[in-house]
Design a protein around this nucleic acid. Structure first.
Length: 108
DNA sequence: CAGCAGGCGGCAC
DNA sequence: AGTGCCGCCTGCT
């Protein structure tokens, strides 16, 4: 299925399935959305999200456990702020995926 | 620790 | 309708 709208919806759904206090990488999110390997797609989709969205886009980080956005960006600070509000701690501006990483595993 | 190449979709020409 | 370029990435060198 190469429907862009459907793909976006898939990302939204995958995003909604992430519990508060947990984070997920772009690659995992893409895999959840049914597009394994399309990590960049996740970034593109999140970039197109409206500011008033209810989706927890801030729970999406890169595989390095860091926010992929530039620190001087308002979105970066917003994301970090929200994550901290959910109980996610930053170690050297990095999130410990070993702890807060959302174990997607097999949705079965 | 930093840099380069690879793979997947979306959007522009 | 087809081709090409770019991106909030990832993994390896």
């Amino acid at each position: 299925m190469n429907n862009p709208t459907a793909n976006r919806e898939a990302f939204y759904l995958a995003l909604m399935s992430i519990p508060a206090g947990k984070v997920i990488t772009y690659g995992q999110l893409a895999a959840l959305a049914g597009l394994p390997g399309a990590a960049r797609l996740a970034g593109t989709v999140l970039c197109g999200l409206p500011e008033q969205t209810d989706l927890p886009w801030h729970r999406v980080i890169n595989a390095q456990g860091k926010i992929s956005l530039p620190e001087n960006s308002s979105a970066y600070q917003e994301q970090k702020k929200r994550l901290e509000a959910e109980g996610v701690t930053f170690t050297n501006n990095k999130i410990n995926l070993r702890i807060y990483g959302y174990t997607t595993l097999t949705p079965n």
